[in-house]
Simulated scan of single mutants.
Amino acid sequence: MSAVIIRRFVASDHTDWIGLWQGYNDFYRRTVEDRTTERLWGLLLSGAGEPFAYAAELDGKVVGFAHYYFTPSTSDWTPRCFLQDLFASTAARGHGVGRALIEALYADADRHDAAQVFWLTEDSNATARQLYDRVARKTAFIKYQR
């Protein structure tokens, strides 16, 4: 297997991205409207701003993605970077895809002088948390939502 290539999405990635996006949504047991998916893909390709995204390519196929935003903070001068979605195909796991995506995001956050990079995951997401525990530190915050 070759090295993981991290790059921005291009139009020809649509089929691979849709399959990954569906896998991601299935993992989190959620349904996303088609119009939301179409809007997201359009924004990812536009290059006009947020959300930003990276594609992870392995052996010529897109096998993972990271979608992220920069957001102002009330306690930091510079923005924070929120990694909203991170996913690698089942077949690509264990090949450094997640780590490569996070490292690319860290580099972009550094270019934007972001005060921090943060993300959420389910407590039960043990496989991903093994990686997260190596590349970041867990905080004490608990998420509430309406």
Rank of each mutant, 00 (worst) to 15 (best):
A109N: 11
A100N: 02
R8S: 14
Q22P: 11
D133Q: 07
H112V: 04
R134W: 07
P72F: 08
D13V: 07
D76N: 14
L43N: 06
F70M: 03
E57D: 15
A55W: 01
T74W: 05
Y132E: 06
S46A: 14
Y28P: 03
L45I: 12
H67T: 15
A11C: 13
G49E: 03
F52D: 11
A88R: 01
R99Q: 09
L45Q: 06
L58I: 05
R80K: 12
G47L: 12
G23M: 12
R93W: 02
L44C: 10
L105G: 00
E57H: 00
V117L: 10
Q130I: 15
A114C: 15
R80A: 05
V117S: 00
L120Q: 06
Y144E: 13
F9S: 04
D108N: 06
S12N: 13
E103A: 11
D13S: 08
A115D: 14
S73D: 10
D59M: 09
R7K: 11
A92K: 05
A55P: 00
N125T: 08
R146S: 10
A88V: 10
D113E: 15
A56K: 06
R39E: 13
R35V: 06
D113R: 08
D59S: 09
A11G: 13
T37P: 04
L83Q: 00
G42R: 13
T71M: 08
Q116W: 02
I142T: 09
H14E: 15
G98H: 01
D26R: 05
R134T: 13
A53N: 03
T31Y: 11
Y69L: 13
H95K: 13
K143W: 01
D108A: 15
T127S: 11
D59Y: 00
D13L: 02
V117E: 01
A126N: 06
R137M: 07
D113F: 11
I102F: 00
D26H: 10
A107P: 07
A128Y: 00
D85T: 02
A140C: 05
Q22V: 12
A114R: 02
D76W: 02
D13R: 03
W119K: 07
A109H: 09
A91W: 08
I18G: 01
D108H: 01
P79L: 08
T78Q: 10
R93T: 05
E103F: 03
Y54N: 14
G47R: 05
A92S: 14
V63L: 12
G49V: 12
F87H: 12
C81F: 01
L20Y: 01
H67C: 12
L105P: 00
S124I: 05
K143F: 03
D110T: 14
Q116R: 14
S75A: 10
A66R: 03
D34M: 09
V117C: 02
G42T: 08
K61M: 07
R99H: 03
E122N: 09
Y106W: 02
D85R: 00
L20H: 03
P51M: 11
D34H: 04
F65Q: 02
G60H: 09
Q145C: 09
R80C: 03
A107V: 02
G47V: 08
L101A: 09
E50K: 04
S46C: 05
W21G: 02
D16L: 10
